[in-house]
Amino acid sequence: MKLEGFPQNLTLKDGTQVVVKPLEAKDAPALLEFYRALPEEDRLYLRDDVTKPEWLERFVAHVQHNEVVSLIALHGNKVAGEASLYRALHGWTAHVGEIRISVAPALRRSGLGSVLARDLVKLAIGLGVEKMIVQMVESQLSARRLFEKLGFRQEAVLRAHVKDIHGIKRDLVIASNDVSHLWEAMEALVSDFSPTVG
């Protein structure tokens, strides 16, 4: 799948220049390096062991099969951040997409996370996704703030669902953004029905 509007050249709030683009197979080694350098604390909340080459291989395959849409931000030849949209292409949640996002600690709080997330939400809508979810730990305040600004609202809390790096159990927050009304408007537009015109 070819995603349009990329690469994007960006200057972050702190002046850092990055390029945002869809992940390609050739970026895989840089992505692995990025994940390996993430603090363990952040990696713990990810569902896969992203430091393993096997994970990366599967991830790239998912991207190639359109099950995952992945955007990366490159700073020079290093990955500075990654955002992915996971889609179930079949079954009863085929209209739902899950977003995950990470930014390199040194570059946080400069707006990169917001840009990546916003681009991904736009892409998701373009792909026909009707509802997006994101899973966060209660303590991931910047993630919660970031997604709230993009229209996500807390939908469920799973109590003591995750254990952090110190073994302390924490609540998992699931926030969602239902964009189906956009498509309802399109549906109305193509209904070809007018009560006043016979």
Binding site: K122, I125, G126, L182, L189
Partner: peptide, 13 residues
């Protein structure tokens, strides 16, 4: 300019 806001990307594709 004819399709609902937010659906432009998919419609243009």
């Amino acid at each position: 300019s004819s399709v609902p806001r937010g659906t432009e990307d998919l419609n243009l594709r």
